[in-house]
Design a protein around this nucleic acid. Structure first.
Lengths: 152, 152
DNA sequence: ATTTTTAGGTTGCAAAATGCAAGCGAACTG
DNA sequence: CAGTTCGCTTGCATTTTGCAACCTAAAAAT
């Protein structure tokens, strides 16, 4: 496990993986602007390390100028761990998390993971959970059969 | 989640929590000698931060000289996440992990977590998985609710 | 065909975190 | 009383981080 933490045990790596997995982020810019404020040199370094560690892959986008980062099989396999961390954080740290959504995930772990894996396999870039506060569009229906948008 | 990583997102914090949870470590010395080689100043700092973050508690030991660190409710709640990380690491990083034991944990998540929680509640310092060896022995199996330990 | 914008970085530098070895005070032990 | 164990702290060198500025290549706009 110490080897795992060599790769993932820092302030940013898991945040990047989470952004790829649940928010569907793919490009350098998206990570950069994801609100937490990572410096560009650190972001570049982390992406390289994750690539070297076999957690992400980079591929040129169709438009020719941007690069798309994508989780590998090894990377998407972090989903269960990340889900548990998300739940733990919602309960014990993040007071601003959308409680109803989290509770639903908690009671529907398998479905959430299945949906996460499907989105990865089909390269579906839609966010797993829609952006927190200003979501008025009923676009993305995340987890399982029973899904209802409950605001905070 | 970024708040969670403020507290846990570094090379050592999760390793300390794991040592408390699965190896039953309690004292400064035990953490220090746990093989990974953390410097004493860093260890002291991490223990303080984990205490400040409400993940561990410190209590004076009976012998008067040593201190016992113990996971709080919030700390033991990290068990599901840590179990998933352990499994992920065994599959994708740690080639030296005891594969059979891991596989058993994987198919028995709920029981492993129940046993972990019991050990915490009863202050049972026995390691969850004994120092690495073959897992064909039923006595070492932590999974079942049957337990005959007479500590305390 | 030039300019402008966008994307994905690199570089230099200061500040903070880390690793290492040594030492320190209090509590027990002989 | 001397010596050991325990949980740290201190000083110092090295490494990592954060910040801002800058760079190149390609697409878009003019």
């Amino acid at each position: 496990m110490s080897l795992s933490l060599d790769l993932l045990g820092d302030r940013w790596s898991l945040l990047i993986v989470r952004d790829m997995m649940v928010r569907g982020y793919r490009t350098f810019r998206e990570f950069q602007r994801s609100g937490e404020g990572i410096a560009t040199n650190i972001l570049a370094d982390r992406l390289h390390r994750l690539e070297a560690g076999g957690v992400v892959d980079r591929e040129a986008a169709e438009d020719g100028r941007s690069t798309h980062y994508r989780l590998t099989e090894k990377g998407i396999a972090l989903a269960p761990m990340l889900l548990e961390l998300l739940i733990w954080g919602a309960h014990h740290e993040d007071s601003d998390a959308p409680c109803a959504a989290i509770e639903q995930m908690e009671q529907n772990r398998a479905a959430v993971l299945a949906e996460t894996y499907r989105r990865w396999k089909e390269r579906d870039p839609a966010p797993l959970l829609p952006p927190f506060r200003s979501s008025t569009e009923p676009a993305a229906a995340p987890a399982a059969a029973s899904n209802r948008r409950t605001s905070k």
